[in-house]
Design a protein around this nucleic acid. Sequence first.
DNA 1: CTCATTAAGTCAAGTGTCTTGACTTATTAC
DNA 2: GTAATAAGTCAAGACACTTGACTTAATGAG
Lengths: 403, 403
Amino acid sequence: MNDSRPIRAKSGTNHEGTSAHNRRVMIDALRINGALSRADLARATRLTKQTVSNIIEELERDGLVSSQEAVRRGRGQPSTPYRLVPEGAFAIGLQIDRHVTRAVAVDLVGSVLVRDEAGLPPGGPSNGTKVILDLVAGIRSKLAGIVQQSEKRLVGLGAAMPGPFGVAGSGDDPWMMEAWQKFPLLETLTAGTGLDVGLQNDAAAAATAERMVGAAHGLDHAVCLFVGYGIGAGLILNGELYRGANGNAGEIGMALLFADGKSTPLEHRASLASLYQHLSIDPADAGLYARINDLALRGDQSIHAWVEAAAVDLRWSIHLLETLFDPQTVILCGSAPEALVNRLIAAIGPLLPSIAERRGRTLPRLQPGMADPWSVALGAAAGPISRAFDPRFAAILKDSLQS
Amino acid sequence: MNDSRPIRAKSGTNHEGTSAHNRRVMIDALRINGALSRADLARATRLTKQTVSNIIEELERDGLVSSQEAVRRGRGQPSTPYRLVPEGAFAIGLQIDRHVTRAVAVDLVGSVLVRDEAGLPPGGPSNGTKVILDLVAGIRSKLAGIVQQSEKRLVGLGAAMPGPFGVAGSGDDPWMMEAWQKFPLLETLTAGTGLDVGLQNDAAAAATAERMVGAAHGLDHAVCLFVGYGIGAGLILNGELYRGANGNAGEIGMALLFADGKSTPLEHRASLASLYQHLSIDPADAGLYARINDLALRGDQSIHAWVEAAAVDLRWSIHLLETLFDPQTVILCGSAPEALVNRLIAAIGPLLPSIAERRGRTLPRLQPGMADPWSVALGAAAGPISRAFDPRFAAILKDSLQS
DNA sequence: CTCATTAAGTCAAGTGTCTTGACTTATTAC
DNA sequence: GTAATAAGTCAAGACACTTGACTTAATGAG
């Protein structure tokens, strides 16, 4: 009898899953609240003092937390606060963009320790792979030079590049990095570095960065609208990055706008690519960012028209993201000249009315996020850190326990 | 010293959380795959045979699963499959709509056992509360008449009504059920029934129904576009209903379309409300559904124009949902005459190109879901069942363990 | 027809992790 | 000075999953 249809089921869990979760919860609490005593942690996590003590002891042995000086807080024995040890873990983040690749080394609390970039030669993966692997190797050796045991504490390599992934029939769209997207990047990087490798699109990486060290820190529901060469949204839902069924969730750049009787993807109207086109600039130009930043700062007229038009589309995009995701806040970030992003934010307001206008609202509906060419690489690095240390459902399940 | 800023942290877990999760995983596996033997379950959940045996034994004692006849599957001892016992648990679902309220009693596998409806008098909660509580009480007593121990096995009451919830400054919008939305419905229902009460919008309820017994069964990423008096999207993300920060995620009816130089919410163009307006019909009319169903079946011209216009907007909505959520499939469902929904589906195709056009795609991009006036009540009832029995992160945490 | 093989399922002891309750330590308040 | 309060430890206990040997029951090869 050959009744071998595959059985689909979620994985069960056991003691190790419990323990792994509780460790992550401790780390998360310290990340969000800063230093906390064991008693604080016990109350906040609803675990017993004893359990917290055991876990903290273990985390301290692993070099992930350390005690600070005892604090007197009224009656009773003074408490000993513990904090995350930044050099407790590192991750490498890698951004692969159209003309350039950037890599950073980041520590447990999201500080960038090393950064470096290299131009990407035309020709896609066949020419670029070596450049990338060399860049990563350089970062690793520099990191090893400034901190102890960096290799042992390296939890993974996160890569970020423009999406979408695995989509059929867009071969002739110059806005996509077709060749790179078909390339088995994960496998190549894994083989070339020996690290655990993850891949996400650049907007998702930016959102991960915002959650670790930016405007989404400690938030469980946030949407990051990311303006770079393209435009996309990074989604933090229920405290985790949401990837969708195929890692393409949030690709708002592909959303069609109907205007003037024709449909246009948002990406063709509100992105650096569209600005370059508007200004007839070559995107491969080296001093581009500085030049545009300068134009934006000076309030240049050539940029003004584009900013105003893009702001209309972004205002609508924000409205749509609020309507569909009901986030606590929307963050406008980008891998773009900061002055340009600031001008966009100024031009966007006031926002369209939406369900985000609630009674008792505390956070602003729209907040500025990082506007820094390095934020995507930072977010790429934050991915492995988050995967290794943040509490999440998948980490509890038996089929994800490695140790 | 008054250093009492609240400490934010996720809850830890313990043995009970582990056990609760594993129970849920078993139930989920049986729901998705039908009957399975202990050995099957052990392989699928990665737990040991012994653990599975213990849990199954407990579930059997609790009346949630039962054994079927042993099956010979080649060599070795025949396996004894277990299946979910439908009458192992019940939930009541309640739909509160503009002019009518419907209630159903549903069992563990999503079969509707009792249904009843009542007209809602104008005047909102002050007049309607009693009608609703009487309706629920009637359903409960009828349920008690046809199954054993129904009260003991009642896991909760799920309510569904049009959203959005808690939004400021929409007092004069006749498309919203302002009075009901301000009313402390949860508290009233809890006090009036003594049950655990949950509340969600009608699109979310429809999605919950589709996941339990419809087109989203067994899917982890699906979006249900729900056409009723209004229009909304119910989101199944990572195998769970996504609610957003305030329970308003998916309210695509509030999304603005720009056309003819002005902006209009989708809800004003593609919803039964807009059809009623188009046909100059009184929505409170009793035989409305049958009449419209009839018109739709006959291919009536008066409906044709509306269908064609709505299809354009729905086509765009589906494109947008695919782009932002990257689901495995989109389901078009509704609390609307079935023939009308069928005409809409026919008019929507072909879909706009989107990132959903993938290599190796198996599921259709768009699937018809339930188009049944009772589907929202069914989904409302599916809510408590899902909360009580489906595997989910929150169920593992200490602060959600009741037992 | 027999017996090795295969697979389901049970038994009983073992293990890991959290919990419990008593205890110690250290500080403030009266 | 002493009671009250709070942090943190100790040691035993409880719970749920795991392990490995064993039992049961079928097939298939000789």
